[in-house]
Design a protein around this nucleic acid. Structure first.
Length: 294
DNA sequence: GTCCGAATGACATACGGGAG
DNA sequence: CTCCCGTATGTCATTCGGAC
């Protein structure tokens, strides 16, 4: 006996798992990951919508429709990942955010992740993990806490604690070596030169974070040997903004070496073709070389 | 082999916003 | 107003795989 309606394929469950992992995916991102054309993507997503697997919606000023996991899809994902529905942490209350800046930022982080996962295999790298900002864990008190949030002391002023949550943390493995990366997607709206908020605050965080070494905690997440450091990757809107930020950092009193591990590029360089090319500049304004990740 | 349902690509169509 | 473009859906022919 065959159930009426579309049959759930391997690809469908991969799509559902990805929609679960990415939380929201735009139609063109799903196409990039799985389909040869937009038309086919629409058609398949429509089928999955009818089955109660996913839901799609439109948000103002976002060109694509956005999909998230629906109830039946959560069941499939739980089965595919061999988790209980509860462990999945999926709730029917999941809503469809319309806020433009939130979504824009969210989808840009997804773009970065998609570019990584699509291109890694062809450059002999493996993406050993990607933990987004919204990933939470339960504390002993039963509260939800952002897993990748960290607090460091300012080494020049031990009274001061700097707390920060990256947009994502990921690791790339080549042969035996694993590199650790922090991702910051800058929307171009945050102030640059105030060390207590915006861009400079997170730069200050990373500089101190580098010195304290507490990023070694990610060894357990990515199952690898001690890191030799990390790179903080800032994706921002324009070359001018990169120049401004580098200028501000070069005037920021801190030892120079860690500044070479804070990297910048433009959003337009984040796609499968270019993500592993020499698109990165360091925060060290003296250093005019271009670098690549991996 | 045939039959049937599902998936897909090619093409057509409807709709709406923006430019001219 | 018309025209164009992008989104989204509809129709048709073909292909694929499983049941018989």
């Amino acid at each position: 006996m065959t159930a009426p309606g579309p049959i759930l394929t391997e690809r469908d469950s991969s799509i559902l798992v990805d929609i679960y992992r990415y939380r929201y995916l735009s139609i063109s991102q799903i196409m990039q990951l799985y389909f040869p054309s937009l038309q086919t993507t629409y058609r398949r997503l429509r089928a999955l919508t009818k089955l109660g697997m996913v839901k799609g919606y439109r948000a103002p000023n976002i060109p694509d429709s956005i999909y998230y996991l629906d109830g039946k899809g959560a069941e499939v994902v739980a089965q595919a990942l061999k988790l209980s529905l509860e462990d999945l942490g999926w709730h029917r209350t999941s809503r469809s955010p319309k806020d433009y800046y939130f979504l824009q930022h969210f989808l840009q982080v997804n773009d970065f992740r998609i570019a990584l996962s699509l291109t890694c295999p062809s450059v002999a790298l493996s993406l050993t993990g990607f933990i987004p900002e919204y990933f939470t864990e339960k504390t002993h008190q039963g509260e939800l806490k952002k897993y990748i949030k960290d607090i460091v002391c300012n080494i020049h002023n031990p009274e001061e604690h700097i707390s920060h949550t990256p947009d994502a943390v990921f690791a790339l493995a080549k042969n035996q070596a694993t590199g650790l990366f922090f991702l910051e997607v800058d929307r171009g709206t945050e102030v640059i030169s105030d060390e207590n908020k915006g861009v400079l605050k997170s730069v200050k965080f990373y500089l101190n974070y580098f010195k304290t070494g507490s990023y070694q905690r990610y060894q357990t997440d990515f199952n690898c040997n001690p890191f030799r450091g990390f790179r903080a990757l800032f994706v921002t809107t324009s070359a001018t903004r990169i120049a401004n930020i580098r200028e501000v950092i070069s005037n920021f009193p801190f030892e120079e070496k860690p500044k070479r591990f804070i990297w910048f590029t433009e959003q337009k360089n984040i796609n499968p073709k270019t993500i592993f090319q020499d698109i990165w500049q360091t925060a060290d304004a003296e250093d005019n070389n271009r670098y690549r990740i991996g």
